[in-house]
Nucleic acid binder design. Structure first.
Ligand SMILES: [Mn+2]
Ligand SMILES: [Mn+2]
Ligand SMILES: [Zn+2]
Ligand SMILES: [Zn+2]
Lengths: 146, 146
DNA sequence: ATAGATAATTATAATAATTCTAAATCCAAA
DNA sequence: TTTGGATTTAGAATTATTATAATTATCTAT
């Protein structure tokens, strides 16, 4: 579970930008997120992180996820009242949550749609974040329906 | 805090549709939501409801809000990890959350935008819900900025 | 109207995700 | 290498919400 130099550099630069220290744990949690792009919860990340770093604590996982989010390296994703999930895809994208399979997919959004959404805001309002979440049934779960 | 006949009828019909009973509490909680259109939390609703119905319990407020949501009379609104808020506006709309003032605004969305969003989904996926939340600073909070 | 069956309300306990606390450890600058 | 602040850690605390079980209300059929 080594962080590729490219990502290690990105991590170090992002942390330095805010005066935060690069630590083994932050590096490892970041690598866990990059390893499998499936929007894990903090508990999921904890379980995966412990495989290679058995002494890491859940509190640290939460701390690292918070630090990485604050540094702009990952994003938090929320569905209704479910536990927060984490995503290293930094493009402007929405999320599709299939209630049938539980799967979460990234939905890439064009600049055009983003701009139209921003244009729906009243004059003077500025958005520094737009969360878009779809709930539904994915194609796979529709196949073989009665 | 009387429910207008129009809304009383709508409530009764929606409850009957799912075999649920109209109760004083459900009626009252619905009226609280309609009274002030500001996206209150369950605790807010509890506080307002007790003004006219001092014996209502918090559990009942949660139950009523759940029932009203399930019946399609109100919607739940979530921002990040904050407590769920409730909204009786049934039009397709997004929410703008001003981090400065804490105010939450309805942002009406055209069918065109909704359709474009749905069109961004992969073939075969169907969405039965789309949540759109803006975080930012509203016009009022921008005025008189340095 | 009354009685029996069922649903809803209530007070309280339980749960679950997250945050806080304080002690131990680590890191980076001097 | 020392040292001070940052980070990690284990565990306690918090908070929104849900579950439980007893009581009360509503509905349906008589
Ligand atoms: Mn994503
Ligand atoms: Mn609303
Ligand atoms: Zn699916
Ligand atoms: Zn504002």
């Amino acid at each position: 579970m080594q962080l590729k130099p490219e990502y290690k550099e990105r991590l170090d630069r992002a942390l330095a930008r805010t005066g935060l220290r690069p630590t083994k744990q932050r590096e490892h949690v970041f690598s866990v997120l990059l390893e499998k792009l499936d929007h894990p919860t903090a508990d999921d990340v904890y379980a995966r992180a412990r495989a290679d770093m058995p002494t890491i604590s859940l509190a640290t996982v939460y701390n690292c996820l918070e630090t990485l989010s604050a540094s702009g390296l990952i994003k938090q994703v929320n569905f209704e009242r479910e536990p927060t999930r984490y995503c290293p895809n930094l493009t402007a994208h929405a999320h599709f949550y299939c209630k049938e399979s539980g799967e979460i997919e990234d939905i890439e959004l064009s600049d055009d749609i983003i701009n139209r959404l921003k244009a729906a805001l009243p004059k003077g309002h500025t958005a520094h974040r737009i969360d878009i979440a779809f709930d539904g049934k994915c194609g796979g779960c529709h196949d073989g329906e009665d």
